[in-house]
Amino acid sequence: MALSEKQAKRNAYGEELRERRERAGLTQAQLGKLAVLSRSHIAHIEAGRRLPSREDAERLDQALNTGGVFVRFLPDANLAAFFEEVAELEPQAVMIREYQNSLVPGLLQTEEYARAVFARGFPRVSDEKCAENVRTRLGRAKILEDSLTPEVWALLDEAVLRRPVGGYRAMAEQLRHIVHLGEHRIRVHVLPFSVGAHALMESGVTLMRFADMAPLAYVEGLNTGTVLDSPAVVEQSLVSYDLALGDALSHQESLALIRAVAEEYEDAQRPAHP
């Protein structure tokens, strides 16, 4: 079977890194120390399983004195630099577990919802750039076209449902989309306000499992994001997710709540009768 274009690029990137590392007389562990990366991360890159983030590529260039080769070798992508590695990892995952406390996860966003998110970002971007960002985000959802892999669980704080991003019509459409996905493709669980404090309330998180490498966690803040591959940190994140999931509504109860909130938005659009 022919390699996909993305896999071929990952393989080429890994071969280039391995060749230049060996030419410098460094082990993976030694290069990792110089570039402030884990040995396992270096190993995954060289094996073609992962691409580095732009920041990691810059550190590899500095450690190997390659004059920007590894940054230039990264594929062009209309993504925030800190998210590039995650976008490469998502299609390889066999399971993705998301928790979001304020926004619908990118994989589940509708066009109008995504446009509203990008339109409120800073610094402001042109209409053309906003449209490109939306297309890129919607393109990520193609991994859901496979009916089996990856398995996706979306754990949503009730605040995600209640914040009318893009207005009532856009929000109703977005929630109906989540219901449709929940009925046919993914699992959805809502953490209602009544739960109060829970194990994930401090941060959103994405957890990914793979067939051929260890699980990873990804956390994101304002203008920054970090892929976490420390086994202890990933395990702690998985346990926190499970604890929060235990406080959430069931899949069917969650879909019922999402439908009800979508109806509230739809009712709010209708003109009031005299």
Rank of each mutant, 00 (worst) to 15 (best):
V165L: 14
L228G: 04
V160S: 06
L222E: 14
A87L: 02
A57C: 01
V219Y: 11
E55T: 06
V205P: 09
R72H: 13
G67I: 04
Q7I: 01
S194M: 08
S102M: 14
K129M: 14
I96A: 07
P105D: 12
T226S: 01
L26C: 07
Q109N: 01
R39P: 14
V117F: 11
V190S: 00
E158K: 08
P215A: 04
E85D: 07
A232S: 12
G68C: 09
A119P: 05
G68I: 07
N65Q: 10
P164I: 02
Y13R: 03
K9G: 10
R20D: 10
K129W: 12
A172G: 15
S194D: 12
R115D: 03
A81V: 07
N133F: 13
A116C: 00
L175D: 05
H44Q: 09
L17F: 09
R23V: 12
D56N: 13
A43G: 11
V195M: 11
R18Y: 03
G106F: 01
M95F: 11
L138A: 02
M171N: 03
V190E: 02
R115K: 12
E58G: 09
V219E: 14
S4L: 07
P231F: 04
N78D: 15
E151I: 14
L155G: 04
A12K: 03
A12W: 05
R259G: 08
S237L: 10
E266A: 05
G221T: 02
L191D: 00
L31E: 06
V190P: 02
R187A: 09
G221Y: 03
E16A: 15
V190I: 14
G196K: 05
L37R: 00
E16F: 08
R21H: 06
I42D: 00
T149W: 13
F83D: 07
I178L: 15
E22I: 10
L103F: 14
S250N: 04
Y99R: 08
A217C: 10
R163K: 11
P231H: 04
E55I: 03
S250P: 02
P91A: 01
E112I: 04
L103C: 11
D242G: 15
T226Y: 13
E151F: 15
R115G: 02
A214V: 05
S102C: 12
A199D: 02
R49F: 10
A131D: 15
A81T: 07
L17H: 03
V94T: 12
G139D: 07
A2F: 10
L207F: 11
N11T: 01
A131F: 03
A141G: 12
H189W: 05
H273E: 14
V36K: 07
D247W: 06
L200Q: 07
T149V: 15
R20Q: 12
Y113T: 02
N133T: 00
E112C: 00
I143R: 15
E264M: 06
E111I: 04
P274I: 11
G121R: 13
V94G: 03
A87S: 10
G196T: 02
M201F: 15
S126N: 04
E85R: 02
L175S: 02
R72C: 02
A217R: 05
L138F: 04
P105Y: 09
R72P: 05
R162V: 06
A8T: 08
